[in-house]
Design a protein around this nucleic acid. Structure first.
Length: 376
RNA sequence: GGGGAUAUACCAGAGUGGCCAAAUGGGACAGACUGUAAAUCUGUUGUUUCGACUUCGGUGGUUCGAAUCCACCUGUCCCCA
């Protein structure tokens, strides 16, 4: 894997680069649609590829481990083959489930013991078996198994958790170095910076993670409920320490505004469920602002879904029609809005890249963050 | 023509003397959602100057007090002829 930075913004820390994988190049900054269970919910591969222009998607180790299970995935020849997606895939380790399923798991030195949300079965995730699982899944980019702390989190707890995450990281790298890819292409392990909203812990963690010399680095434990200012502050602190010549991945972020602000801080990669989940709930992101398509005000609005949109759904369907589909709870509503939102997110990062290359990023970003946050 | 049942908020439908401005669904209207236990969840849904006021087919009555009991009227449904 190689990462080349082509342009750096003069007025901010934003960069435009290219990340090479065996499944193709990824132009950064990039947004990665989330496909937890081996599907970006409601979206077909051809839409993802040709319309949305996704360059890489996510999968989730915890969820895929439960269903369909590693046996099926191995038999299929990995996740790429199973879902017929020949571009890069990144898998989260299950570290986020340590946070989101906190009520049904227990943390030990060894790992995390989950009570399956499907059938209650007890299952243990360790740094070692999480790496093994990601080998079987065949992700181009594998994530370290970490403890994503909740917000708020007391300093002493965050400190203790961070130490555990670092010990787990050492074990992840050991297992990673002792195992080989199963399907003939390279897989890379990204470590994750933690430390909650504490500057000292974030610095400590960023230094620890940087020392690993990984091909890319991630920042986790943010966008879990803390104020946006804290998220930006931590991101800035960490970006100042993480190696400049390696891609930086801000996990789970975020709103379109979060993404633009974080690009300005030097982040290259993003993922978030917001465009897809909010799409299913009727929220559309556009260059002009946010639309709740379920609102009565769109009932008689027969204009294009988004006249500035880049997706075919934007010109094909009217606001009134998509509202109607949503009100009736029709499957097509979720499909249309998911395609729209993902296309918007991909447009946003592609445009950001272009602006960085043109040297106009900061002015453009400052204008956009106001525009896209408006409620229409 | 005879007999029986029923009428409650936008709809369906509980409630059969005070704890009822009235359960529960649905619908409608808003809001939330950040490495997906999420096609989910939350709130509002008679008026209001927030003290109260006007509601349960209509009118009148009984009672300290009525959606609830009584009389008549009106509408709807069912059965028999």
């Amino acid at each position: 894997m190689s990462f080349t930075i082509n342009h750096t913004d003069a007025a901010s820390k934003a960069r435009a680069g290219v990340l090479q994988t065996n499944h193709g190049a990824i132009e950064t900054p990039i947004f990665m649609p989330v496909g937890t269970l081996g599907t970006v919910k409601t979206v077909h591969q051809h839409e993802l590829k040709d319309d949305i222009k996704a360059q890489i998607i996510l999968g989730n180790t915890y969820h895929l481990f439960l269903r369909p299970g590693l046996g099926v995935l191995k038999q299929a020849g990995g996740l790429h083959q199973f879902i017929n997606w020949q571009k890069p895939i990144l898998t989260d380790s299950g570290g986020y489930q340590v946070f989101s399923l906190a009520s049904s798991r227990k943390i030990t030195e060894q790992g995390a013991i989950f009570k399956s949300h499907i059938n209650g079965a007890k299952l243990e995730f360790t740094p070692e078996n999480v790496i093994d699982a990601q080998r079987v899944i065949g992700a181009d980019i594998m994530m370290a198994f970490d403890e994503c702390t909740p917000y708020p989190c007391e300093h002493h707890k965050a400190k203790k958790s961070l130490a555990l995450t670092h010990r787990w990281l050492d074990r992840c790298f050991k297992q990673y170095n002792n195992t080989e890819p199963l399907y003939g292409y390279n897989q890379y392990l990204f470590p994750i910076v933690q430390g909650s909203v504490y500057k000292d812990l974030r610095i400590e963690s960023a230094e620890y993670i940087s020392a690993k010399g990984a091909v890319g680095n991630a920042i986790g434990g943010l966008s879990v409920g803390e104020p946006a200012e804290d998220m930006y502050a931590m991101t800035e602190v960490v970006c100042n320490i993480l190696p400049k010549d390696k891609p930086r991945y801000l996990m789970g972020v975020g709103t379109p505004v979060n993404i633009l602000e974080s690009i300005a801080l030097g982040i290259d990669m993003f993922d978030c469920v917001m465009p897809t989940r909010n799409a299913r709930h009727g929220l559309l992101y556009t260059q002009q602002g946010i639309i709740n398509i379920k609102n009565e005000k769109w009932k008689n609005d027969f204009s294009e879904l988004d006249s500035n949109g880049t997706s075919y759904v934007d010109k094909t369907y009217s606001k009134a029609y998509v509202r109607h589909l949503h009100i009736c709870n029709e499957y097509l509503a979720a499909q249309i809005t998911s395609i729209h939102n993902l296309a918007f997110y991909l447009w946003l990062v592609t445009e950001a890249r272009k602006q960085i290359i043109d040297g106009t990023f900061t002015a453009w970003k400052n204008k956009m963050v106001i525009q896209i946050a408006q409620r229409l």
